[in-house]
Design a protein around this nucleic acid. Structure first.
Length: 217
DNA sequence: CACTAGATGCTCT
DNA sequence: GAGCATCTAGTGA
């Protein structure tokens, strides 16, 4: 009974996570009273991707990965960190995009409260830190994401912090770098990780590790 | 900056 | 019980 609230996820953002992932960069994600621009993402597939949680089939935890696109898949990592994916594949097909880094653009006080003493550019660096800034919990796994037009002008205080909203980037092209994911033999050919070139919210050493001698600016 | 070790709790066999 | 799609603090240059 969700008052006709179907996911407003656009068809352009449905498909192979490797193709959709770079399209999410520059988009704005809202939850928990904080808004951030996505600066680094990573694609995860289904039964083709040995590193994916969905690789060994459907379980209660990863069920959202197999569900409709435009939904959240949140998992607990190392008992501490909550990492979030955006499901991009059609219903019945597993695949999603892990949100690795972001730049906080609104709700800075809340984000700083959740990560005391951390410099602004590092507030949402890494999947666990990003999830903490946005106050994601395991209960948010499976939630629908409301996708709004890029022209949307919002008042953060008026946005329900329990809802997940996404506003895609539109306008001038962004400089996107990409690199292969290390440690996964079967999928080393195609790039899985994408980030905004030169963005200060992404650490340099991690960048160098992920794309040795190639796509970095 | 590079590297190491330890924390921490849910998920699945 | 084992194993994590990780992060931080600590060390040494």
């Amino acid at each position: 009974m969700s008052d006709g609230s179907e996911s407003s996820w656009p068809a352009e953002l449905v498909g192979d996570p490797v193709e959709i992932a770079p399209l999410l960069l520059g988009g704005m994600l809202l939850h928990g009273g904080v808004a951030m621009i996505l600066t680094e993402v990573e694609a995860y597939g289904g039964d083709q991707d040995p590193a994916s949680h969905a690789f060994r089939g459907r379980t209660p935890r990863n069920a959202p990965m197999f569900g409709p696109p435009g939904h959240l898949y949140v998992y607990l990592s190392y008992g501490i960190h909550r990492a979030a994916n955006i499901v991009t594949t059609p219903d019945g097909v597993a695949g999603g995009v892990l949100l690795r880094s972001g730049r906080v653009v609104a709700g800075l006080e809340l984000a700083t409260e959740r990560r005391p003493g951390i410099v602004e550019t590092r507030l949402a660096r890494g999947p666990g830190n990003l999830g903490r800034c946005l106050a994601f919990s395991l209960d948010d796994s499976g939630s629908a994401i409301t996708c709004l037009p890029s022209a949307t002008n919002f008042d953060l205080a008026a946005v329900d912090p329990a809802l997940v909203r996404f506003i895609p980037h539109a306008g001038d092209d962004l400089a996107v770098s990409h690199g292969p994911r290390v440690g996964v033999g079967a999928a080393q050919e195609s790039p899985f990780r994408f980030w905004l070139a030169g963005d200060p919210t992404i650490s340099t050493y991690r960048r160098a590790r992920d794309s040795p001698g190639g796509t970095t600016p």
